[in-house]
Amino acid sequence: MLTRVELTMDCADPARLAEFWKTAAGYVNEPPPAPFATREEWLASFDDEYDDGMGGAWLHDPSGVAPRLCLLQVPEPKTAKNRLHVDLRVSGDGTPDEKWARVSAEATRLRDAGAQVLQTFEGHHVVMADPEGNEFCLA
C-alpha cells in the first residue's frame, strides 16, 4: 500500500541544491526523525557500513501536499537528460496574459536564484534547469 511519494535526486552539492529548491518550491528543511535532535545525530546512529561519506539534504513541503525531496550526494556528474522531472505550477487565476506574466516573472526569479532557461514555450511553460542541470518545467 502506498503511503506517500518522495523524490530523490542525485547531486554533487546537496546543500547548494537544497537552497535552490527551497527558493523554487517553498520547501523547508525536514526535521530529523524522532527521537533525534539533529540530522547528524540520526546519521550517526547507523552502522559504519552505511556511511559512504557522502552528504545529503532532506526537504519537505510545509503544507504537507507536495512530495518530500531527498538530495543525495554522488561522486559522478549528471550525464544525460532526466527521465523524470519536476513540474512547478505558478498559482493564481486570470487571463492567459496575466498567467503568462506570472510564469515569466517566476522564471526570472528562479534564474536569479541559479536556474537556467533551456526553452520557452511562449504563453504556456518554460523548461529550466536547476544549478546542477536537472531539468524542470515552470507553468
Score class of each variant (00 low, 15 high):
D93I: 01
P77T: 00
W21A: 00
D87R: 11
V117S: 03
L69N: 07
A115T: 11
E41G: 02
D93F: 03
E40Y: 01
P14G: 07
T3R: 15
T8M: 14
H124D: 15
C11W: 08
G64R: 15
A34R: 14
L43S: 05
F20G: 08
G26L: 03
N29W: 13
L110F: 10
K78C: 00
A24F: 05
M1E: 13
G56H: 14
L43W: 13
W100M: 05
Q73F: 08
A129Y: 10
G94H: 08
L110V: 09
T120I: 02
F36G: 05
K78I: 02
H85A: 01
V65S: 14
D13T: 02
A34E: 15
V5R: 00
P33E: 08
M54Y: 15
F36M: 06
D112S: 11
L7C: 10
L7W: 12
V28E: 13
S45I: 06
K22G: 01
T3G: 15
L72P: 02
R111P: 00
R16Q: 15
P31H: 09
R89D: 08
P31E: 13
R68H: 15
T95Y: 06
E132T: 02
E41T: 00
A25P: 06
K78R: 11
A57L: 04
K81T: 14
Q73G: 07
V86I: 15
A105N: 10
T3V: 15
D47Q: 14
H60T: 11
D47V: 06
T3P: 11
A80N: 07
C70K: 05
N29K: 05
D51I: 09
T23D: 06
E40L: 01
N82F: 07
V127M: 11
A57N: 07
S91L: 12
Y27W: 10
E19F: 05
V126R: 05
E122I: 01
Q116K: 13
P33L: 09
P67H: 06
V127Q: 12
R111I: 00
S91D: 14
H85C: 02
D93Y: 04
V65P: 10
C137D: 13
K78N: 01
A129Q: 08
R102L: 06
E98R: 03
F46G: 10
L59R: 00
N82G: 06
G26I: 04
W42V: 03
M1A: 12
E76I: 01
V5H: 03
V65E: 15
F36P: 04
A34S: 13
N29V: 10
A101Y: 02
S45W: 10
L2F: 14
D130C: 04
D10W: 07
T108N: 09
A15D: 14
G55V: 03
Q73A: 08
L59F: 03
L138F: 03
R83W: 08
D10Y: 11
Y50F: 15
T120E: 13
G123D: 08
R83Q: 11
L71E: 03
L138G: 02
G92M: 00
F46S: 11
P14I: 12
Q119R: 14
D61V: 06
L69S: 05
D48C: 08
L17G: 03
A25C: 11
R39F: 08
R89H: 12
